[in-house]
Design a binder for these strands. Sequence first.
DNA 1: ACTAACGTTTACGTAAACGTCAACTTTTGA
DNA 2: TCAAAAGTTGACGTTTACGTAAACGTTAGT
Lengths: 128, 128
Amino acid sequence: MILCSIADLSRASGATPRTLRFWESEGLIQPKREGQRRLYDQRARTRVKLIQRGQRLGFSLAEIREIVDLYDAPAEEAAQLSLLLARIAARRRQLEAKRADIEETLAELESVAAVCKERLVNLEGDAQ
Amino acid sequence: MILCSIADLSRASGATPRTLRFWESEGLIQPKREGQRRLYDQRARTRVKLIQRGQRLGFSLAEIREIVDLYDAPAEEAAQLSLLLARIAARRRQLEAKRADIEETLAELESVAAVCKERLVNLEGDAQ
DNA sequence: ACTAACGTTTACGTAAACGTCAACTTTTGA
DNA sequence: TCAAAAGTTGACGTTTACGTAAACGTTAGT
């Protein structure tokens, strides 16, 4: 299954055909063509997964495009490589900040949960 | 500084007055009133920070409202406490899934960075 | 041969999360 | 006292990320 139709990829990914066409119009994926019809190869399917992961993390499509472009930027010159490394470092910092937000939220939720559990235990004790 | 104006909170938080009023209209914050004017206490300011953190994590305002409401839900009965604990557990799983997405992305970016650095070293070697 | 099923482009509609006036009242410093 | 500054409530505009519908071409099974 090296190439698949838009319906196949839609079923496999959960994204609607409309969404896949929209992402293409935004330059996020570039499927092959057989006449008019789109044909998605492994590279396109991988990018769809990257797009969806980016969305789960709250990135806009514009940011997602920049992120996935980091993966296959054809860097030859030293200057291009340095620029690419700088961009990767910036995204890493951004992701680490998000991770820190997550850790804080998790800690707070755990603390609320602890209070809840204690109250539950007290209620059970009163009931006996 | 137990109470502050909308302009004060706007400066302190980075959210515009329009945004603060919008969040209020959506039921995310409930400032006091002095006549017509809004007065924000510490509780309101804390909620603003929670909202902004939720936004950085890609949650919608509807989700954020559910999340911040977990912090001050007045659970008295055992049934309410159990429900609250279940909701907290669901949010925890969601946050852990996001964290896993972040770890994957970080790992991939590091691998791309490693390739870049290797190429850079090779280029420097060729130059000598 | 024919009709579903699948695909295409084009265009308009929509929900979320505010931005941007407008028109007006209230407060406050000179 | 009086004008600037700050605040208020509508109401309409904007961007993002698609949904939905129209009108049409292509392909596959009976």
